[in-house]
């Protein structure tokens, strides 16, 4: 589903703040901005916003752990990412969803192709960021299979991560455990 006009404005604002936080190396703000995109990722499920959520979270992790220092000529890299984010903002302002998605993918590819030596490491950070975002999306009520599909993951990856999170207690079961056990026992009798 395409973003509404209102959501395009919000997404553009998030990217503007991302450019600033990236320049200031503010991991906390980046993490918060990534979480903000999750709400619309769940509702609209457009690939631009999903890519944005994963990318911003990955950048927050690289800065938080000071791993960005491993990236040769970080300043040049930061400018390149920001230039794609600026193009994505322009596309959002023109309601051009295809261009928005394209520029977000380019920004992600910039990160992935940072250096041959760092490629496996960056891929792992991106994978973990995707799993983290998946858990947030699942928390919003989207099924784990649907969530896995949205983020290009498998249910195996998501299952392991979900099990380690305490958030699953939020929804109330309609059937009591006693009733479900009685159902299971009578079925297997």
């Amino acid at each position: 589903m395409e973003l509404s006009k209102e959501e395009c404005v919000n997404a553009a604002l998030v990217l503007q703040k991302t450019i600033k936080a990236l320049k200031e190396k503010d991991a906390l703000v980046l993490k918060d901005l990534s979480n903000q995109t999750i709400h619309s990722s769940c509702t609209f499920q457009d690939s631009g916003t999903i890519t944005s959520a994963v990318l911003i979270y990955t950048l927050s992790k690289l800065i938080e752990r000071s791993d960005y220092k491993k990236i040769p000529s970080w300043d040049k890299f930061e400018k390149k990412i920001s230039s794609f984010l600026k193009l994505a903002i322009s596309a959002l302002k023109q309601n051009n969803h295809d261009a928005y998605e394209r520029h977000m993918i380019k920004a992600r590819q910039t990160l992935e192709s940072v250096s041959r030596n760092l490629k496996p490491y960056i891929e792992e950070v991106l994978r973990k960021a995707s799993i983290n975002k998946a858990s947030k999306i699942h928390e919003h009520g989207i099924s784990s299979e649907k969530t896995a599909r949205m983020l290009g993951l498998t249910q195996w990856e998501i299952s392991e991560y979900l099990g380690s999170k305490p958030v699953q207690e939020r929804l109330t079961e309609k059937l009591t455990i006693q009733k479900r056990i009685a159902l299971a026992q009578s079925f297997f009798s």
Binding site: S40, E139, H140, S143, S144, E145, K146, L171, K174, L175
Partner: peptide, 24 residues
């Protein structure tokens, strides 16, 4: 999978969860 079970057993809860979480 809880989403599928809620769809059958308690769709109102699913509606409330998504509305509350997404703030939409």
């Amino acid at each position: 999978e809880r989403t599928t079970r809620l769809l059958t057993e308690n769709p109102k809860d699913l509606e409330m969860t998504i509305a509350k979480k997404t703030q939409f």
